[in-house]
Design a protein around this nucleic acid. Structure first.
Length: 554
RNA sequence: UGGGUCGUCGCCAAGCGGUAAGGCACGGGGUUUUGAUCUCCGCAUACCAAGGUUCGAAUCCUUGCGACCCAGCCA
C-alpha cells in the first residue's frame, strides 16, 4: 500500500491529523478504531469507515483497533461478530487490538458509580413513555423528573440493586444529570443504563443492566487511548455528550470525535434494518447474495478487496451528504479485473455452427493468450473442431446498422482461431434458427486474410470439447437510484436483478476454474466461480460486472 | 432566531484572499484478432442567491434561500 502522503488526495480529516501531528498533539500518536455493532453483516458503507480508520492508522504509523460495540445484546450475535472479523481481514486490514465494549462493563459500572457520587447521575423511576413526555420537544424545553434530585446515597443504593437484579426490566434507568432545557436534546438527561434481562453473547447472564451507546463509546475510546474517534454525521449532536462524559470522569485521555458523511450508493441500500429484511423475507438468497451491497455479497460476486479499497479512496471524504453513482464502483472493479483477470471464452446462449469444410474427426489445439496485454500470464490450450458454438446474439439475419458480427454471406473472425463465412441458415419447421453452416479459411490462423478486411471478432467454444455451466447474470437490485426514499423500498426491487442461464458452455480450461481466480469471459464480462453452489463437476459462474459497452446502437 | 451540519461541472471532489486541480460519466479522433483495454482531444468566464469589504473574493462580512440530522430505556 502506498504511504506517500503527497500522493494521497486531500481531505479534511487528513488535514486535521496533519495539523495535530505538527503541534505534537497526543505526542504524535494516531490511534483509531473501527467500532461496529455486531447486529448484521458489514456493507459497502462500513468499507468506507474501515478504509478510513485502518487507512489513517497505516498512513500515520499508528494503530487501529477493531472494537465490537456490543451493548445491546438483543440484536447481536456471534455469527455477526465472526462475519465482521472475516470481512475486515478480507478487505486487507489487520487490527492492532480486538476489543468489545463488553470488556469494559465493570469499568463502565465503576465510572457510573463515580458519576453518581459526583451528583451527576441519578436513578429515575419514570417509565419510558413518561421520560419521552418529560423530554420536551425540538422547540420546547423538557421538564425535570421528580427523581432528579434523589439523594446521592439513595442513587448509589438503587443503582447497586439494579445491577443485583432486584428490579424488573424497565423499572429504573440511570440518567446523566445535565440540562433538561438544553437546545440539544441529547443533553436532556440522557439514559445511560437500562435494565434488560437478556443473555449476552460474551458476558452471558452476568449483567442485567447494560450501558448505552453515548455513555459507552466515549469511555471505550478513552480506555483504548484512541486519539481520533471517527464516526458518521448523525453523531454530530452527540459530540457534546461524548465530551461531557469524559470531562466529568477526568479520563486519562480525551479522544477527539470527528464526523464524516456516510456513503450513499445509488441503486442500493445500506440500511442494516432493510438489508436484514431482504434476507429474512427471502428477496435475496442471504447476506452473501451477490446482489447485496454487503462485503460478503460483493466478495461472492467477484469483487476484489483492492477494487473496494480503491473505491473508498476515490469517493472522497467530506461532511457533505452525497450520492455516489454505481458507475464509480463499476469503474474500480473493471480497472482491477481488466488488469488481472484471465481471459477465457464462454458461450452463454449457444447457437450451433457446423464448419462444413473442416474435417469431421479433426480436433486442433489452439494456444491462446490468457491476457491480451500481459503475455507473462501465459497461454492456454483451446480445442477447435468442426462443430462449434457461438453466441446467438453474434448472428443476425437482419443485422442492425453497423453490425460487425456474423451475417449470411459475411465473414467473422473466431477469436484466436480462423475466419469463417456463413453459407447457410438452418431452421426448424417453426422457422427458428437451429444451426448455421459455415466454411472456414485455413489460411487465416494467426494472420489476416489477403485482400479483404474482417471487422468482427466473436468468441466461441467447440461443442464436444466444452463444458456445461450455469451462469448467473446479476443486475442492480433496485430500479430507482434512491430506493430508501420510496414509500416501500421493496416495491423498487428489480424483478430482473438475477438472470440464471443454464445452457451455457465454457471452454475446456474453465473446467479447472477456482474460486480465487477471476475471469474475463471475452466480450461478455467479468466472472468468478460461485463459492457456494459450484461443486464437483458443477460449474456455476457469477457475473461480477459487464464489460464497458461503447457500441452506440441507433 | 430550537439546536447541529452542509451548499464548487450530470455524479464525486480539490481549493483555505492572487484570478476554478483531479476522478467518474458523457462526446469526438487514433490503435486493436474482445464494439474491451490503451491513447489523444473536448467538457464550470464560473463556485446556492443578493449585497458588501478589497487592487483582487469560491475563499472574508451581511442577509436571504435550499438540503440533511436530532424528541430510543437502538447504535
Amino acid at each position: 500500500m502506498s504511504t506517500n502522503e503527497n500522493q494521497l488526495p486531500a481531505n479534511f480529516i487528513r488535514q486535521i491529523i496533519a495539523n495535530d501531528l505538527k503541534i505534537n498533539k497526543n505526542n504524535g500518536k494516531v490511534a483509531t478504531r473501527f467500532p461496529p455493532e455486531p447486529n448484521g453483516y458489514l456493507h459497502i458503507g462500513h468499507a468506507k469507515s474501515i478504509c478510513l480508520n485502518f487507512g489513517t492508522a497505516i498512513e500515520n504509523k499508528g494503530t487501529c483497533n477493531l472494537r465490537f460495540d456490543d451493548t445491546n445484546p438483543e440484536k447481536e450475535s456471534v455469527e455477526y461478530m465472526e462475519s465482521i472479523k472475516r470481512d475486515v481481514q478480507w478487505l486487507g486490514f489487520t487490527w492492532d487490538g480486538l476489543y468489545h465494549a463488553s470488556d469494559y462493563f465493570e469499568q463502565l459500572y465503576n465510572y457510573a458509580v463515580q458519576l453518581i457520587e459526583q451528583g451527576q447521575a441519578y436513578v429515575d423511576s419514570l417509565s419510558a413513555e413518561q421520560i419521552r413526555a418529560y423530554r420536551g420537544t425540538l422547540t420546547e424545553p423538557g421538564k425535570e423528573s421528580p427523581d432528579r434530585n434523589r439523594p446521592i446515597a439513595e442513587n448509589l443504593d438503587l443503582f447497586k440493586r439494579m445491577r443485583a437484579g432486584e428490579f424488573a426490566d424497565g423499572q429504573y434507568v440511570l440518567r446523566a444529570k445535565i440540562d433538561m432545557a438544553s437546545p440539544n436534546i441529547n443533553m436532556r438527561d440522557p439514559a445511560i443504563y437500562r435494565i434488560r434481562r437478556v443473555h449476552h453473547q460474551r458476558t452471558g447472564n452476568d449483567w442485567c443492566i447494560y450501558p448505552m451507546y453515548d455513555y459507552t463509546h466515549c469511555i471505550s475510546d478513552a480506555i483504548e487511548g484512541i486519539t481520533h474517534s471517527l464516526c458518521t454525521l448523525e453523531f454530530e449532536d452527540h459530540r457534546p455528550l461524548y465530551d461531557w462524559v469524559l470531562e466529568q470522569l477526568h479520563t486519562p485521555c480525551h479522544p477527539q470525535q470527528i464526523e464524516f458523511a456516510r456513503l450513499q450508493l445509488e441503486y442500493t441500500i445500506v440500511s442494516k434494518r432493510k438489508l436484514n429484511q431482504l434476507v429474512t423475507e427471502k428477496h435475496v438468497s442471504g447476506w452473501d447474495d451477490p446482489r447485496m451491497p454487503t462485503i460478503a455479497g460483493l466478495r461472492r460476486a467477484g469483487f476484489t478487496p483492492k477494487a473496494i479499497r480503491d473505491f473508498c479512496e476515490r469517493i472522497g471524504l467530506t461532511k457533505q451528504n452525497s450520492w455516489i453513482e454505481m458507475g464509480v464502483l463499476e469503474y474500480c472493479i473493471r480497472e482491477d479485473l481488466n488488469e488481472n483477470a484471465l481471459r477465457a471464452m464462454a458461450v452463454l446462449q449457444p447457437l450451433r455452427v457446423v464448419i462444413t469444410n473442416y474435417p469431421e474427426t479433426q480436433v486442433e489445439q489452439l494456444d491462446i493468450s490468457n491476457h491480451p496485454q500481459r503475455h507473462e500470464l501465459g497461454k492456454r490450450s483451446v480445442p477447435f473442431a468442426n462443430v462449434i458454438l457461438i453466441e446467438q446474439d453474434d448472428f443476425a439475419e437482419l443485422p442492425p446498422p453497423k453490425y460487425k458480427r456474423l451475417v449470411v454471406g459475411g465473414e467473422v473472425r473466431l477469436r484466436g482461431s480462423y475466419v469463417i463465412r456463413c453459407d447457410d441458415v438452418i431452421k426448424d419447421a417453426d422457422g427458428n434458427i437451429i444451426e448455421l453452416h459455415c466454411s472456414y479459411d485455413p489460411e487465416t490462423l494467426g494472420k489476416n486474410p489477403e485482400g479483404r478486411k474482417v471487422k468482427g471478432v466473436i468468441h466461441w467454444v467447440a461443442e464436444q470439447q466444452s463444458y456445461p455451466a450455469e451462469v448467473r447474470l446479476y443486475n442492480r437490485l433496485f430500479t430507482v437510484p434512491q430506493p430508501d426514499n420510496e414509500d416501500n423500498f421493496l416495491d423498487a426491487i428489480n424483478p430482473g436483478s438475477l438472470e440464471v442461464l443454464t445452457g451455457c458452455r465454457v471452454e475446456a480450461s474453465l473446467a479447472d476454474a477456482t474460486v480465487e481466480n477471476r475471469y474475463q469471459f471475452e466480450r461478455t464480462g467479468y466472472f468468478c466461480l460461485d463459492a457456494v453452489d459450484s461443486g464437483e463437476g458443477k460449474l456455476v459462474f457469477n457475473r461480477t460486472v459487464t464489460l464497458r459497452d461503447g457500441w452506440v446502437k441507433d
